[in-house]
Design a protein around this nucleic acid. Structure first.
Lengths: 197, 197
DNA sequence: AAACTTATGGAACAATCGTTCAGGTAGTTG
DNA sequence: CAACTACCTGAACGATTGTTCCATAAGTTT
């Protein structure tokens, strides 16, 4: 059975293909950012990466800025997942340390891209909410009884990640684990308040 | 008495002027970064900001990249001062909170520039040492007995700053003070080891 | 199948970029 | 003051940029 709209018209296959290409362009843009940073994003570099004609990005996104913002808003969801994986995993200090170590080593490109988002949000107010979203989600997910200690923990996560990016050699989980352990000592404080249903 | 070289030759006034212009160009570049980010740095924009001819930046710095790196290395010293003011002030939590609040409000442009340095260092190894320098200096200045607690503190400083930059309204010192206070509780641990003379 | 709508892409444009270069200017030396 | 040197700059070039435009292809409806 073919997909149809409520009014009986067929779903326009042209639009469907368009949406796919739209996402392909955004994903290509993110890959470019991971590899070369925001500075490397041009219509042509994105088109080359996505394997589409030069004018395709322009066609789907009115301006290069729109493309960049769309990409970063989308990547913010990835950021959210990464960060919540760190914060709300409920795991041991070692598990958290492992996630951080991965973020600054294997996933280094993506982590760099995420902080490019942070920095751009500093200059583009419309990106602020997206960049900050994981912080809000973290608070909501954990519902810390001691918000002060939890905010300190969240700040330290950001600091460990960004400092890990500029280290000569990326820190491994063995180095990170004691620091994380120190940060979450008395973690019971975080989760003492159960979520109200 | 006019300045002379040891060999009796006069100091070349031409070179002296050149050095001044060199610094003027770097300072102009930093202002451009503070205002528009690294993306806004071009030979022409820098020249306009510095009030020098278009080709002057090219003349003094072989390539635009050299200019950028020279600027960021120089700004790293400012970063160092700022950070050490925070860390090694030996001040109260309130004083530290005040410095952070200033960095994300009044000095917002400069703080943004400093994190652009951080991020660029993530992609340019030759900048890493400069970006990391304040961390090394902080450790050396404080000589913490508990390096783990101190590194957590340093990471949290970075996190508070960068999160302050993407907040809807910049946090003030009243909000920051309890967090800082939490971070430096048991600060005696930091300074328990006196510097060996 | 004809009419119609939407998606698509190659050519081209103006603007801006980094950089080159030959000549001019200012300061120093003899 | 003439010769010399080092610093400096305006004009210009080739490359790349974002974006526009129109012809065409693809898909849908009548």
């Amino acid at each position: 059975m073919e997909p149809r709209q409520v009014d009986g018209r067929k779903v326009d296959g042209r639009k469907a293909r368009g949406e796919k290409k739209r996402r392909a362009i955004i994903e290509a843009t993110l890959r470019v950012i991971e590899r070369d940073g925001i500075a490397g994003v041009t219509h042509r570099s994105v088109a080359r990466e996505a394997g589409v004609p030069t004018t395709a990005p322009t066609y789907y996104y009115a301006t290069l800025d729109d493309l960049l913002i769309a990409t970063l808003l989308w990547s913010a969801e990835v950021l959210c997942d990464d960060m919540l994986q760190i914060v709300a995993s409920g795991g041991s200090a070692r598990e958290i340390a492992k996630v951080i170590a991965n973020a600054v080593d294997e996933n280094r490109g993506r982590t760099l891209a995420e902080y490019e988002l942070y920095l751009l949000a500093g200059r583009r107010p419309e990106l602020k909410a997206a960049a900050r979203r994981w912080l809000d989600l973290a608070v909501e997910a954990v519902r810390p009884a001691d918000p002060v200690a939890f905010r300190a923990f969240l700040a330290a996560i950001d600091g460990l990640l960004i400092q890990g990016l500029i280290a000569d050699v990326a820190p491994n989980e063995d180095e990170l684990e004691p620091i994380v352990s120190f940060l979450i000592r008395g973690r019971d404080d975080f989760t003492a308040v159960p979520r109200e249903e």
